[in-house]
Design a binder for these strands. Structure first.
Lengths: 196, 196
DNA sequence: GTGATTCTTTAACAATTGTTAATGGATTTG
DNA sequence: CAAATCCATTAACAATTGTTAAAGAATCAC
């Protein structure tokens, strides 16, 4: 993929969050390395070093963790044309505390996180973009937290469908169930219950 | 409270997160205005403008939101000698999307968030501190998320007791229950069940 | 394309959590 | 001090969710 192609993929993705100047887009695009993963690939491993930022160009992925009982818990989904959690929020000393997995064929932009941080420091529009990503990240988490704390599973599934409509027919129900905080058997029951 | 007193209260609080130089501590302390609240006071209102950062010198507070049904959901607790969620993570366009309430008499340092951001940009140790606060904030949220998604209420209460030991005898069980994602009646039952 | 594997659904039963209402204790207010 | 208010507990019952096991459907590998 050449520089221009990268720019044209990156531009709408960034502008959707917080617009930046053409010059800033050039600076960012210069840092981008495109990576492609197959369905099922875990491309960030908990406990391993990671010093990149990521934009999702194409496909869907999730972050997940193992529960105390060793079950995979889906924390978040990331859709096409969106930004992955900022490096600072998913690492400690550049060591990842989450796993990230491609749920479909996945094309991402990766950027060195330190260089990106320098761009944030030196360019107010990139800083604004980075801060907006951060805000959205937290907002999503608070929304999920409220859902888990105040809604029952049926209501959470309804919200999930509003937000991630097409995922339900695309990815494993075990993953979705863990995201909703229920078993996949319960999910199956709820799906039936909502078919009326 | 004079400048030296503020410095001596702020130093350990910051060093606990990520140490900064004496010069940086001076710069930060210069921005600090001390605020005191009474038990029950809501000092940040959802929907209202807030452009401050806060350090908790003394007392305990919580963030909360109203659920769709109008119930208060406790999102987080903040203990003595800790840093409140960064402004960027609890506001959008400087408009707060959470409420914050003093649960005891509360003494906080408040700092202009824009000036703090400038210090973060210009001083690497302050930037490190700010980034660590952010990381801890997210880490806490992910931990809570995992708890809500993978543990039952009894296990969540046990974890709560490990983390916030003394809160249980200090603040309303209605608040704690909403934090745990259960009703206060369930909480009462679980407390009894755990007394054996 | 067929067998093997994985994923989803269903069923029966158990455990957990919610709802409503009543009781008792503690704290506040006048 | 007494009345009023708030908070935590208890009880009875209902609804939700989990567990285990089996069957059916879809997908994958050869």
């Amino acid at each position: 993929m050449n520089f221009e192609q990268i720019k044209e993929l990156t531009r709408p993705l960034i502008n959707k969050v917080s617009p930046i100047s053409e010059g800033s887009l050039d600076l960012l695009s210069d840092l981008i390395v495109v990576e492609v993963y197959e369905k099922g690939d875990v491309f960030i491993d908990r406990g391993k070093r990671n010093n990149k930022e990521y934009f999702v160009y194409e496909g869907v992925c999730r972050s997940f963790l193992l529960s105390p009982e060793g079950e995979e818990i889906t924390i978040s989904y990331f859709l096409e044309s969106s930004v992955l959690s900022p490096n600072k929020t998913r690492t400690a000393n550049q060591i990842s505390h989450l796993n990230f997995q491609a749920l479909t064929k996945l094309t991402v932009a990766s950027l060195n996180a330190d260089k990106f941080e320098q761009l944030m420091i030196n360019h107010i529009d990139i800083r604004e973009f980075g801060n907006m990503v951060l805000q959205n990240e937290l907002l999503t988490k608070v929304e999920k937290e409220i859902g888990l704390a105040s809604l029952n599973a049926k209501e959470r599934l309804i919200l999930f469908r509003e937000k991630y409509h097409f995922l339900e027919n695309l990815i494993s129900h075990v993953d979705i169930a863990s995201y909703l905080g229920i078993t996949n058997i319960s999910l199956s029951r709820l799906r039936k219950g909502l078919m009326e």
